[in-house]
């Protein structure tokens, strides 16, 4: 079976700094995959390569069986807009827009009309426990509320893959677990694959499986014993 999204033996250096050195990682349709590993090991860089934000120096990235690392910037940007959703740790809401406009943004950007986009955005507020906050701006939301708005924005266009980089990193553990619960619940409901970067084991435990990045390489180990 081909994986929905896959990186094969990718290498990437920032100038003299090698960030990825032969990393391979794959997620299947509907799977929730946690990417763990020490700080600076290359987790975010790997996520950015999978999502077509960065292109690796060597190796392949495939989405739905097709190479995406060889696409031009315009095509990759269209892919990100139409097929992928994103949730990051900080500073992701557009401060000038209301919460509901923020959620509707991916739809507006792919050409949906404003009334239709807002109509699709609104049910997310009840679903994520954000009733009544539709018209607030990001400065008027708590960190946990803002993160749920960001989550709704990441999922509203029903992406095939949601990329989440430390989505609970700025939240206390209870709020973080609520966000995880909602994220994994909503992703499973709509069949969205999730690639979740986190260094917190309790967050990673929401995933189906984890992969560990060390020194720019990823390994997925089963818990079976290994041969001596």
């Amino acid at each position: 079976m081909t994986h929905l999204i896959e990186a094969r033996d990718i290498h990437l250096a920032f100038g003299e700094t090698p960030a990825l050195r032969g990393a391979s990682l794959a997620a299947d349709a509907g799977e929730v995959l946690a990417v763990m590993g020490p700080s600076g090991s290359g987790k975010s860089t790997l996520l950015h390569c999978l999502a077509g934000i960065l292109t690796p120096d060597a190796g392949e990235v495939r989405f739905d069986g097709e190479r995406i690392d060889t696409l031009g910037e315009a095509q990759r940007s269209a892919l990100r807009r139409d097929r992928f959703g994103f949730v990051f740790q900080f500073g992701q809401l557009v401060p000038e827009l209301t919460a509901e406009e923020n959620v509707a943004l991916p739809l507006l950007l792919n050409g949906t009309r404003r009334t239709a986009a807002l109509a699709e955005a609104r049910p997310w507020f009840a679903r994520l426990g954000l009733d009544g906050l539709e018209r607030r701006r990001s400065g008027e939301l708590s960190g946990g509320q803002a993160q749920r708005v960001a989550l709704a924005r990441g999922l509203v266009a029903r992406p095939r893959v949601l990329f989440a980089d430390e989505p609970t990193g700025a939240l206390d553990s209870l709020t973080g677990e609520q966000v995880m619960e909602l994220m994994v619940g909503a992703a499973r409901e709509q069949g969205t694959t999730v690639v979740l970067v986190t260094h917190e084991p309790r967050v990673a435990a929401y995933a189906d499986r984890e992969s560990v990045v060390r020194d720019g390489r990823a390994t997925s180990l089963s818990a079976e014993g290994v041969a001596p």
Binding site: P201, A204, A205, Y206, A207, E210, V212, P228
Partner: peptide, 27 residues
């Protein structure tokens, strides 16, 4: 002189698997 790193990786995977089970139970 054995591969202690590999042992730790295996242990880590066993711990994560148990944490997934407990997370499910908790939910």
């Amino acid at each position: 002189g054995r591969d202690a790193g590999q042992y730790l990786d295996t242990q880590r995977a066993a711990h994560m698997r148990r944490m997934r089970e407990l997370t499910e139970l908790r939910r």
